[in-house]
Design a protein around this nucleic acid. Structure first.
Lengths: 208, 208, 208, 208
DNA sequence: CATGAATGAGTGTTCATTCAT
DNA sequence: AATGAATGAACACTCATTCAT
């Protein structure tokens, strides 16, 4: 490897790293203050630079949100696809998907919050069409899993599937608003308890 | 009595009614576009008047949000207090609270969305301190109910109470983002199915 | 005519008048400082209002330039069309067109300057396509007139027509950069002398 | 002697050459986009380097314009002075000056465009006072030539001298906006035809 | 009650310029 | 000589708010 190549790689990597740093700061601020209510200057402050300097790295505020969200979604789908490829039973698939989701929250908490709060608003711009695509694919995946589970006897068949879908979807993702790494419970512990609640309910079985 | 005077006579009631109309429009727009992303002009457009005219009725954009939220919270707490005053068993109380919550969503959907999405942001201003108070009271109420239920054997005791609290809280309120009056399911039907899920889970009991 | 209609007309007219006022100020500043080098604030200052207030009347800086230019071009072409419709001889047509041009300069001096200095730059945006259209029509009109004049013996035939075209075009329009109403010479006097120069030259005939 | 040292030896000349290269690119871009509308980055792009790198060679954007304009004006005046020193008759002087002007356009087209479009704007800064000086000298030169020509019978005496001055000035310099080296007509051919137009006009003599 | 013109602080963005490497 | 990251002032534009009518 020639020194030239070494340098080129070094700066390309350094640039990518800097972008990641800045996007991390941006995601944090967007998540806590809301995308619209956040000023570019606040993002820059959080990153320790001046407002204008962000534009050396990014085209616009929107493109920061774009990169934050697409990075998160790509990783999330990669982990979902791995689960789906394993071809497990309905119940095991559900368990694996929920665990994967909480791991996503653990790794991308601010991005998840941003996604939840602003995707509807952002999706009005064509550049964010992939948000709707992802949402559609997500819904299809869950609905078909829940229907299959009901058919196979893994899940109760007396509940509205659309309602269950929303129930699970909301339950999982909203956790991003309060989850914090290093808190009382780890992401895996939360996943386990969530699964217990979702599958068995919080009520005690009626006595005979 | 001239028509002018006739109008004047009804002024107080008419004014209140107009305010309610305008707040309804405002809540709808705030909920769908987000409070920060909504301009006063958009609210005015939705109400069929010009931007400046809103200031005859309200002091500021903030005060509209204030009135929307406090109206909703007052009504919500009135219904909760009624439930609590009935002194039911833990399970029955939970059922009644959830039913009351879905009825709140039915009556104040945009306000609930606004509350969920923006209360954190708005609460930085002292005028919205009551949001935090309400939240605190809400948490206390649920935690004590869940603890009592666990003690009394109505609820499982092996789950983290704080987690259950968040689980229920999120599950219920997020529904405001997709619920629509006159949709496939009524608020009461949704409440019933939610209760089934929350209490019994979606899984089928393991065979012996 | 009902009072309502009177009012409606009154405010519509008042609004148009205000726009015209502001556009007059804008044209003046654009012409003297250059469009790009002019800030919106400078325009507003010249109009005696604040920068933001301009946006109550106009969508953007660009739309001000647009309205200034299209108003000027419309009026210019109206006067040209009148000349062309009269179906005069080549020489008389040329005289009438040049007189009309100087009258345009008299009435729209800043707009002409703006047109000359910035149309190339502005025409990169599709909204200004009409500038290119106008330019093309202008060139065709002049070339066909000059060719006809050469054929009919009204103009010398030994000169390059394209060159004459540019010569006349530039000569006339550049005058907008120094012309001032109420100066030593009226627009008509300038037109007369320009015509003398263009038709007969500034040299004295060679003695026999 | 190493190649490095060989380079170093030629440093002063090499540096001057590089400056000239960069100024050539800058002049081209300034002329085509307008000075204000041109960014330093665009200049650098045209030169194949990065924006910041220009500042190794020049103090500021303004100093580039300065050097472009003063180089052009110095050369132009050198050629004018040569003409004036020859002490020709009025008509021959005019012919020689116009020919020299078109040769200037041929050699410094972008600089001439820049001069025409931006000198008024730039002249607000004291560093560009020489632009006004040049303009004044230019006007004096032409006015005295035209007056002398009128006195001596070389030029018509029935036209406004100030008008003729502007007529010639504009006619000549505006050509820089459309002239291109290697086009249909050479600079000398254009000069010849321009002189024919200016001296004899485009009209045919009235028949007796 | 409502209008419509204006305000002025603030927003996202641009860009000439600097400077360590 | 040139890079590339950063600066900071300025820009076009937005918007909550005011107020005379």
């Amino acid at each position: 490897m020639s020194p030239r190549r070494r340098d080129a790689e070094g700066t390309a990597a350094a640039r990518a790293e800097r972008r990641a740093e800045l996007l991390g700061a941006a995601a944090e601020v967007f998540a806590s203050r809301g995308y619209s209510a956040t000023t570019v200057r606040e993002v820059a402050d959080a990153a320790g630079i001046l407002g204008g300097s962000l534009y050396y790295h990014f085209d616009s505020k929107e493109s920061m949100a774009d990169e934050i969200l697409s990075t998160f979604l790509n990783e999330m789908w990669a982990s979902y696809d791995q689960v789906l490829a394993a071809d497990l039973g309905a119940r095991e698939t559900l368990e694996a998907l929920i665990a994967a989701s909480f791991r996503s929250i653990d790794r991308h908490r601010p991005a998840v919050v941003l996604y939840q709060n602003e995707s509807k608003h952002l999706a009005t711009s064509p550049r964010f069409d992939y948000l709707l695509d992802s949402q559609r694919r997500f819904e299809e995946m869950w609905l078909s899993l829940l229907e299959r589970g009901a058919r196979e006897g893994a899940f109760r068949a007396d509940l509205d599937v659309g309602l269950i879908y929303r129930f699970i979807r909301d339950t999982v993702w909203v956790a991003a608003t309060w989850y914090q790494r290093g808190g009382r419970l780890t992401a895996d512990e939360i996943a386990t308890q969530y699964l217990a609640m979702v599958l068995e309910g919080i009520g005690t079985p009626p006595a005979h």
